[in-house]
Design a protein around this nucleic acid. Structure first.
Length: 1000
DNA sequence: GAGCACTGC
């Protein structure tokens, strides 16, 4: 894949001697273009198109020589693409053939869907027949006439005598079509094979390797997705629904046989049957409701005394209760000498006493000796063992911070870094920000005196940019390493590298009891130091049988726990906002129905997007006699700790982001969680006393179906940012970078390709000047490119706002369930023609005009928290503008300039309107505008999107209308004029591409 | 006509 290093020099020399040109970028452009062209003709044509060289003179000869010399990777895929196009054209032909046949159907129909066409036709025919019966005979002729006309007047499609015969001929026709498609597929395959033979051996090998990986990835995905989805509730229900329907259909098929009556068509009968079924179900349901009501009133008269152990059987239907079996116990760490948790009195008495009571304390000397003897040490210890707060202090006391050296301790979360730093400062009796400080984005609470620095992992990563060898640090401690965040994983690779040539640097990797062996192997068999934690035992219960509807099961179990178990709060883990809201509603509803028969149950939701005042409610202490049930997302797994939780209810699912490097598409799917995260959840029950964890799956499922650990983030996310960072640290060979778990090859490749397209890397994969600037900005590469481009269009003020708004994750608009209409209205009020980016700009501007008011946010259904964050991001970016040599300027309402600047960053993400909806320009993938977009009903011809997400469809979120000519303006190296012309448009708008085409 | 878990720079 690498271009020979001497090539560029050769081209430059030639350019100089033949044409007297000496610009480097011309040489780069020529090589790049030559690499992408299939034939010399195309190359020359492209040079003509872009007007780079005057090809009338000796330059033409030179161009040919150059073309011969440049190795072309494009050759690998281009002919394949051509073959594909050809095959597509063939298919298209077939389609038009089919159009003749299925004259009533749109061109969208595929063979697979044609089955349903038959049904539609049945319906139509049935309708016609009815009419025929109703009306007189003379009309009959006209109807059949119309029928003929409708089928395109084609002679092949004469109307057969009977219904069945007609159906048969139709089937045969479809079969024929399928055969043709298969033929087209064969043609395409043959051409592909031929292309492959043309390749040189080395290219071929690489190509095949890539193909293999791609195939494997695809297969993996195919195999995994249904597997994962199968488990999601919605899918399960859908499947059940389908099965029900299938049963129904089978029944009907039997009946059809019995019914001698020709009058009823199959479809009619089916409808009838279905209606009957629905009616019966409704009856059953109503009857059940009556019964329930009856029982409820009966229960009301139950004497108080019977409410004892078996009470729940009275409150809950017997078939409603869920049977759990106790299987295992999460061992508490036995510590006979230690008094449970340090009480407040003790804390007041002496901070030092508390320090001494921590599990890590007895190991102080041993630990320090181990650190002195080994450069890298893996420390294994549960939360609560005091490793995060104590170890850096021990190191400080031992003198690791002399000679102005610092100790760094990284945390995956901002809050953790802040609170730990505050606590350590208190323990050491210094002011926060002096000897002990923290450093997180937007907030640097350190000074020159700071020697103990707590920071987020991303922050340390950024420090590598200014200090690649971490020269001012004597110790680096990576805490919570088992969480395997993206930043932690990158840090591992970098630190391992630094440690090699800085033998005096001490590296500590602190992790929970998980995977320490892997860390050890990664760091050349570094020793593992174990510290016992402090935790209470947790009994783990599993269900006897799998639960189909886990939401319902959750609600039932909560009530079950509430009525049968001793006091103590309950924590329920669900996957998302929607589910949490549903569960809370169900719980409250049931509690209301049960009324005073049960004790008070406080139902509290918690998820990240919940407004802060609602979030704060979960920390209020439970009133006496009541029980609190917190319904949470994963947020409660790591990010926040709720006191008083004794019971944990774990359905075993979580939402997980995954990334498809082939399409650059992210998706968020409900997946079974890993064993590690199940145990983490269970552990939440044992923080204040012995607890219980109820898992809504079987012990067998835990053993055999759950993954050991969650897939590390680095393998399921886009890596544009990371690659740029590593490149700017001088790491060129990313494929062989020492990753603890290497990301998929395709992900890296796509990231490199995108960076190349953005001009951050040159064709040799080296960082360019603009690439270096882009790495300075803490945003995604495309966003930073957009910011850099705003200089040219002098609209950096607006672009900064857009960038800031885009980087807060789609949580700008607040949409409470009970005020959906108002919220939507408020949103529509912000709409501006042009697209969602301008809407965001509009929201921010208005908010700024309101004086950054929270009241304004409340009135306009805008999330204040997100806006504040956007303001922080904007301020930070503004501060960095000078470093990347962009001046502050405003476009004064000329939004065309803003849109052009955005296009300059996002030209990679474009889609065009075709007859069959939107297609991405490069990958030719069918995509849709997100219904929340301001352009949802507009359907402009050319679009740019911020991101592509797969939910129910492939949606483009945050779209902007652009003109195709802008693409040539901002990315002439990436787009060919030819690509941008619109073959289907009747009226051609003015386009550079078109005029050039006409001239050339 | 959808429906976004959690972090981080």
């Amino acid at each position: 894949m690498a271009t020979p290093a001497g090539l560029e020099r050769w081209v430059q020399d030639e350019l100089h001697s033949v044409l007297g040109l000496s610009e480097r970028h011309v040489a780069q452009f020529l090589i790049g273009t030559a690499q992408r062209c299939v034939s010399a003709e195309e190359f020359v044509q492209r040079l003509r198109d872009t007007d780079t060289l005057d090809l009338s003179g000796p330059a033409c000869d030179f161009a040919l020589r150059l073309w011969n010399k440049v190795p072309r990777k494009a050759v690998v895929e281009k002919p394949a693409r051509a073959a594909e196009r050809e095959a597509r054209a063939l298919l298209e032909k077939n389609r038009s053939y089919k159009l003749l046949v299925d004259s009533e159907e749109s061109s969208e129909e595929t063979v697979g869907r044609a089955g349903s066409n038959l049904q539609k036709k049945h319906k139509k025919r049935k309708h016609l027949r009815k009419k025929r019966q109703e009306e007189e005979e003379d009309e009959e002729e006209e109807v059949s006439e119309r029928g003929k006309r409708k089928r395109g007047g084609s002679k092949q499609t004469e109307k057969p005598e009977s219904e069945d015969e007609w159906e048969r001929t139709e089937r045969e026709r479809l079969q024929d079509l399928e055969e043709r498609d298969a033929f087209a597929e064969r043609v395409r395959q043959r051409d592909k094979d031929r292309t492959r033979n043309v390749l040189e051996r080395s290219d071929k090998k690489a190509y095949e390797e890539a193909q293999k990986r791609l195939r494997m990835a695809e297969e993996d995905r195919k195999a995994m997705v249904p597997e994962l989805r199968k488990k999601s509730r919605r899918e399960y229900l859908a499947k059940r629904e389908r099965e029900k329907l299938e049963d129904l259909e089978a029944e009907l098929a039997d009946e059809e046989f019995l019914f001698g009556d020709v009058e009823l068509s199959r479809h009619e009968r089916r409808e009838l049957k279905y209606k009957r079924r629905v009616r019966d179900l409704a009856r059953e349901y109503r009857a059940a409701g009556e019964q329930e009501k009856l029982e409820a009133t009966n229960r009301y008269h139950m004497p108080e005394e019977t409410r004892g152990q078996p009470k729940y059987q009275l409150v809950l239907e017997e078939e409603e209760t869920i049977e759990f079996v106790r299987a295992t116990q999460l061992q508490g760490d036995e510590e006979p000498s230690a008094p449970s948790l340090p009480t407040q009195a003790q804390q007041k008495e002496s901070i030092q006493a508390v320090r001494r009571s921590l599990p890590v304390f007895p190991f102080r000397e041993e630990l320090l000796a181990a650190i002195a003897n080994h450069q890298v040490l893996i420390i294994e210890g549960e939360t609560g063992s005091g490793k995060t707060t104590q170890i850096p202090q021990y190191l400080f006391e031992e003198g690791y911070t002399k000679k102005g050296m610092k100790i760094a301790c990284t945390q995956p979360r901002r809050v953790a870094a802040m609170s730990v730093a505050a606590r350590v400062a208190r323990e050491m009796g210094v002011k926060l920000g002096n000897e002990v400080g923290y450093s997180i984005r937007f907030e640097d609470c350190t000074s020159e005196r700071t020697v103990l620095r707590y920071m987020t992992d991303g922050m340390l990563l950024r420090e590598f940019l200014s200090e690649p060898d971490l020269a001012s640090y004597s110790v680096v401690m990576v805490d919570e390493a088992h969480e395997r965040t993206l930043h932690t994983d990158i840090l591992f690779g970098l630190i391992k590298d630094v440690a090699r040539f800085r033998p005096e640097l001490k590296v500590l990797v602190a992790s929970a009891t998980l995977d320490t062996a892997r860390f050890s192997t990664f760091f050349d068999d570094a020793p593992v130091f174990r510290i016992p934690g402090r935790r209470f035992p947790v009994d783990i219960f599993y269900t006897k049988a799998p639960e189909a509807d886990y939401l319902e099961a959750c609600v039932v179990s909560v009530l079950q726990i509430h009525v049968t178990q001793p006091p103590g709060d309950i924590l329920v883990f669900l996957t998302g906002q929607e589910e949490i809201e549903a569960a809370c509603e169900m719980l409250q509803d049931r509690c209301r129905r049960l009324g005073s028969k049960i004790r008070e149950l406080l139902v509290l939701p918690i998820y990240a997007n919940l407004p802060s005042d609602m979030q704060a409610r979960i920390f209020q202490s439970t009133p006496p006699g009541a029980r609190k049930v917190v319904v949470a997302t994963n947020i409660a797994e790591t990010s926040l700790t709720i006191e008083g939780i004794i019971y944990v209810l774990d359905p075993g699912f979580c939402k997980q982001k995954s990334y498809n490097p082939r399409t650059g598409m992210e998706s968020l799917t409900v997946t079974p969680c890993s064993k590690a995260s199940a145990n983490q959840r269970a552990g939440r029950a044992g923080r204040v006393a012995a607890g219980k964890c109820f898992r809504l799956y079987t012990a067998w499922a835990y053993q055999h179906e759950l993954e050991e650990t969650t897939v590390p983030e680095i393998q399921r996310t886009s890596l544009g940012n990371v690659v740029l960072l590593l490149k700017s640290l001088g790491i060129h060979d990313l494929m062989h970078f020492d990753f603890l778990d290497p990301p998929p090859y395709e992900t890296l490749l796509l990231a490199l390709e995108q960076l190349y397209a953005l001009g951050a890397l040159n064709h040799l994969g080296e960082l360019t000047t603009s690439g270096r600037k882009m790495a300075e900005l803490p945003v995604d590469p495309m966003l930073s490119k957009m910011i850099l481009a705003s200089e040219k269009y002098s609209c950096s003020e607006e672009i900064l706002t857009v960038a800031a708004m885009l980087s807060v994750n789609n949580s700008i608009f607040y949409r409470p369930k009970d005020k959906v209409v108002h919220a939507d209205n408020a949103r529509v009020n912000f709409f501006l023609p042009g697209g969602d980016h301008l809407v965001l700009l509009n929201v921010y501007t208005q908010w700024a005009e309101s004086g950054y008011s929270s009241q304004w946010c409340y009135e306009n259904f805008v999330q204040f928290r997100s806006m504040r964050r956007a303001r922080d991001v904007r301020e930070q970016l503004e501060g960095l503008l000078e470093r990347v040599e962009v001046g502050l300027s405003s476009c004064q309402g000329d939004y065309i300039r803003v849109r052009k600047a955005i296009t300059a960053g996002y030209f990679y993400h474009t889609a065009r309107l075709t007859r069959s909806g939107y297609r991405t320009v490069k990958q030719q993938q069918t995509v849709f505008i997100h219904p929340n977009s301001s352009l949802f009903e507009e359907q402009p011809r050319w679009l740019l999107y911020h991101e592509l997400v797969l939910t129910t469809k492939e949606f483009m979120r945050q779209v902007l209308e652009i003109e195709s000519s802008w693409l040539l303006e901002v990315a002439p190296h990436y787009y060919k004029a030819k690509e941008l012309e619109d073959p289907h448009a009747k009226k051609m708008p003015k386009k550079i591409g078109k005029t050039r085409e006409e001239l050339g």
